[in-house]
């Protein structure tokens, strides 16, 4: 096994005295993102992440355990009340702030993509640009979705009757395995834009963009626990989330097709909302993912003197 990360090798600092040894860069420890903190897996496990093209060792990612997944659900559950009750304007501001933070980390994300997915430098930078634009697109939705998805209903009687969308609660998201950043953002952003709290299982083989994204989220005023990101084995983590009674919905698009039916059976245990919808991640998203984890609440009140 080769040494991790040629990405951050020794380099010469021009200000260093002549003859001094090259400065040794500080490497990042890849950890989970739970409740706004960056813990290692409670299991102590990690797994090697390799470059798509060369097989070179890029880093060791934390291999989340079932306990970590349950902790993430607890964190998401705790965060949901305040996040869903925040004004839609405020949620939009926070999502826009996420776009700003990603733009600032564009270089690192492009590097993650170039190594992890084997994309060329230019393609990786374009992909990060698309990711920023996607956050901006979703940042505009929180204060508009109720006008599009809600309704005033003309019932046959003296009543005011309104239907409004509300977030379903805690949503588990198994991110796409191949599109490790644009795919991830395309499934995550609509979930939290709708006001849900998310527990994400990052791409198993390509988790580094998700880890960098977590750092952007942590500095973007996203309240702790609204997004939790697990790295590790999808086959180990997804069933825990699909069966968890504290999870209200699950997006299994990122799960390999043969494993989806088993997860759907587990999800039936508490009548979870299940989404499985593959898309061209580069295309402009429709409303499907935004609506998938919204409930419609209808309120009646008599009109009279």
């Amino acid at each position: 096994m080769s040494e991790p990360a040629a990405r951050a090798g020794p380099e010469r600092d021009a200000r260093a005295p002549a003859g001094a040894p090259p400065r040794l860069a500080v490497r990042k420890t890849c950890k989970l993102f739970i409740g706004g903190a960056f813990p290692r897996s409670e299991s102590g496990r990690s797994y090697p992440v390799r470059a798509a093209r060369t097989g070179e060792l890029l880093a060791y990612a934390a291999q989340a355990s079932r306990k970590d997944a349950r902790d993430a659900v607890v964190a998401a559950r705790a965060a949901f009340a305040a996040w869903s009750a925040a004004t839609a304007y405020n949620r939009g501001q926070v999502l826009y702030r996420v776009a700003e933070m990603i733009e600032g980390r564009a270089g690192q994300l492009a590097e993650d993509l170039a190594h992890g997915e084997g994309a060329s430098g230019a393609a990786a930078r374009r992909a990060v640009g698309a990711v920023v634009d996607r956050w901006v697109w979703y940042a505009g939705w929180p204060d508009k979705i109720a006008q599009v998805a809600g309704s005033a209903n003309q019932v046959a009687g003296p009543f005011l009757n309104l239907s409004v969308p509300e977030p379903a609660g805690v949503v588990a998201v198994v991110a796409p395995g191949d599109s490790s950043l644009l795919g991830l953002v395309s499934v995550l952003a609509p979930v939290i834009a709708a006001g849900n709290a998310a527990v994400v299982v990052a791409s198993e083989a390509r988790p580094l963009p998700a880890i960098t994204l977590a750092e952007a989220l942590a500095t973007a005023d996203v309240p702790p626990g609204v997004v939790n990101i697990l790295t590790g084995r999808t086959a180990e983590l997804a069933p825990v989330l699909a069966a968890h009674f504290g999870v209200d919905g699950i997006d299994i698009t990122g799960v390999p097709a043969p494993d989806r039916a088993g997860l759907e059976r587990l999800a039936a245990g508490n009548v979870k909302r299940v989404l499985c919808a593959e898309e061209d991640w580069a295309a402009v998203p429709g409303l499907r993912r935004l609506l998938a984890f919204l409930e419609i609440k209808t309120v009646w009140h008599p009109a009279g003197l």
Partner: peptide
Amino acid sequence: AGVVWANTYNRFDPASPFG
């Protein structure tokens, strides 16, 4: 809850989403 009745209860109408 999917349906909230305020100062009324058990009202139904085909134009009113229920679930």
